[in-house]
């Protein structure tokens, strides 16, 4: 490490204030219905993680324990199938994007990998933090779970459309036919 690498952490404190993080979270559709008080707690517990371009963010098959909210940069979501990587989705900060929200609810291994296509800054919320906040505000749990599932379905629809758009002609079949 040269001295400039050591220097890179110098101003990590900047921009990490709870107010700024809260303001960012408020813009995300994911948190639209979340009370400000709870949002501040999430902001306080959220980590800022930075990934240089071309670095993996999550690796398919490794345990999923946090949700990623993209603050800046672009991320490619890919899945490995029969030894080949398939691109599933492109996420960028412009659309207030996020992924890994299911990791808040259950323990599982990543079903896909996420790569930083550019330098990426993300806010992450761990499952533990989510559970701790929900323990404090249990009345908000059903609504939050329902929100996570709805958004997940929207994403599922998006991804399905993306795959269908890229499907080869010969894969098309009439609905109802067996083969």
């Amino acid at each position: 490490m040269n001295s400039s690498t050591n220097n890179k952490h110098r101003h990590n404190g900047e921009g990490s204030s709870i107010d700024r993080k809260t303001a960012f979270l408020q813009q995300l559709p994911f948190f639209h219905e979340t009370a400000l008080e709870t949002l501040r707690l999430y902001a306080y517990l959220a980590n800022i993680e930075k990934f240089p371009a071309n670095e993996p963010i999550t690796v398919q098959g490794e345990p999923a324990d946090r949700m990623y909210l993209i603050v800046s940069g672009r991320i490619g979501i890919c899945a490995e199938h029969r030894g080949r990587q398939f691109h599933l989705q492109l996420l960028s900060a412009d659309g207030f994007n996020y992924f890994g929200e299911l990791a808040l609810l259950a323990e599982f291994d990543w079903l896909f990998s996420a790569f930083a296509l550019t330098d990426v800054t993300a806010l992450t919320i761990t499952r533990e933090a989510f559970h701790k906040v929900m323990e404090k505000y249990p009345e908000q749990l059903p609504k939050t779970v329902s929100r996570i599932i709805k958004l997940r379905i929207e994403r599922f629809v998006d991804q399905t459309h993306y795959l269908l758009d890229h499907l080869k002609e010969e894969a098309w079949r009439e609905c109802g036919s067996e083969e």
Binding site: E14, G15, I18
Partner: peptide
């Protein structure tokens, strides 16, 4: 510890 304690930031 500024890098760990997200409760506030280090003043400029």
């Amino acid at each position: 510890v500024p890098g760990r304690h997200s409760i506030t930031g280090l003043p400029e």
